[in-house]
Design a protein around this nucleic acid. Structure first.
Length: 349
DNA sequence: AAATCGGGGTA
DNA sequence: TACCCAGATTT
């Protein structure tokens, strides 16, 4: 039996009932695909349900503020997805008369829609013959056909793309694309796949050559860089006696763009109170503290894929503070990185 | 071509 | 720890 037919047969028996599987509405398919980029189904599903509940149509999403979109996205990571999601919703609503384009080429022009996502939407919504190539597909193809080219090199990327095109079932592309991804996620798992029970094991080159654990081959990535963050939390009391602080929006490029944070001093290494007191007038001139103390004895290490953030939280008690002031009890509506959302949860004055 | 962009789950 | 996740974009 053909590879594609084996995959489709496996899918018919094993597919999960996922919230976006019941529809061909391009808005919902698009939303699910953006959420699921580099994100596991179990992590993304609650966000998908939240977004559909808040924004039933693309026009609802377009009419929301970016603040609102980022807040709903909080905790999911890769926040450019949320900013691009909002921009594309506005584009579709404003320039496409509220209707998503129905071709791969037109879809790919939209922000946040690359090769994979354009193929996914075109095939799932319109049954257009574009094979998806995601992390699951790389793994399944590399193993079944015994391909040792690195999947993230230029050569390998092109090779897998043409191979995917070669082995797809064009007549059933809508199901086939979801089938091969589901097969990769459930059966042909990254680690310790249960090959003895796999219905594709008879034709699997990796299994024959004992290469299952070694495939796919991936070029090694760079090591994470260490950064030293000093968050200074100003603390003052307003006229009614409520404690308030100051936050700011991250405008520069880099992580967490357009998310909110406390005033930040980044240093080249870990610093103590003495150094901090010298830096505050230089970098955070709006803070005039009567007392400053360290909130966490050991730096909290927040690990991202490419950065390790050694973070100290300093409390700066002030008579008054200027800037974007917010009561401590009213920080919830602001979209913040998990690092800061976690801090706020534990923070007791 | 390589780096960057999060956070969480798994072995 | 190391690796991966329904990748896209920038450098």
């Amino acid at each position: 039996m053909l590879f594609s037919q084996k995959v489709l047969r496996w899918y018919a028996m094993n597919k999960r009932a996922l919230p976006w599987r019941a529809t061909k509405d391009p808005y919902k398919i698009w939303l699910s695909e953006i959420i699921l980029q580099q994100t596991r189904v179990v992590q993304g599903t609650p966000y998908y349900l939240k977004f559909i509940a808040h924004f039933p149509t693309v026009a609802d999403l377009a009419n929301a503020s970016e603040e609102e979109v980022l807040k709903l996205w909080q905790g999911l990571g890769y926040y450019s997805r949320a900013r691009n999601l909002h921009a594309t919703a506005k584009m579709v609503t404003g320039e496409y008369n509220g209707t998503f384009p129905n071709t791969y080429a037109e879809l790919k022009k939209l922000k946040g829609i690359g090769d994979y996502t354009a193929s996914a939407i075109a095939s799932i919504c319109y049954n257009a013959p574009h094979p998806v190539v995601d992390g699951n597909v790389y793994r399944v193809l590399a193993r079944y056909f015994g391909i040792t080219l690195p999947i993230n090199g230029t050569q390998g990327s092109a090779y897998f793309k043409q191979l995917a095109h070669q082995v797809m079932d064009e007549s059933r592309i809508r199901d086939y694309n979801q089938a091969i991804m589901e097969f990769g996620a459930i059966q042909c798992a990254p680690k310790s796949p249960n090959c003895p029970i796999c219905p594709l094991n008879d034709g699997c080159m990796a299994l024959q050559k004992d290469l299952v654990e070694g495939l796919p081959v991936k070029l090694k990535k760079s090591k994470p860089k260490t950064r030293y963050f000093n968050y200074v939390i100003p603390l003052a009391k307003d006229v009614e006696g409520f404690p308030y602080t100051v936050i700011e929006k991250r405008r520069e490029k880099g992580i967490w763009k357009h998310l909110w944070q406390f005033p930040l001093i980044e240093s080249d290494s870990e610093i103590d109170l003495g150094i901090l007191k010298k830096k505050i007038p230089e970098q955070l001139h709006f803070i005039d503290a009567t007392e400053i103390y360290l909130y966490n004895e050991k730096p909290l290490v927040h690990k991202l894929t490419h950065q390790h953030l050694h973070t100290k939280f300093w409390i700066a008690e002030c008579e008054e503070v200027h800037g974007h002031t917010v009561r401590i009890g009213a920080l919830e509506p602001y979209a913040m990185p998990v690092l800061l959302a976690d801090f706020i949860k534990t923070f007791k004055i």
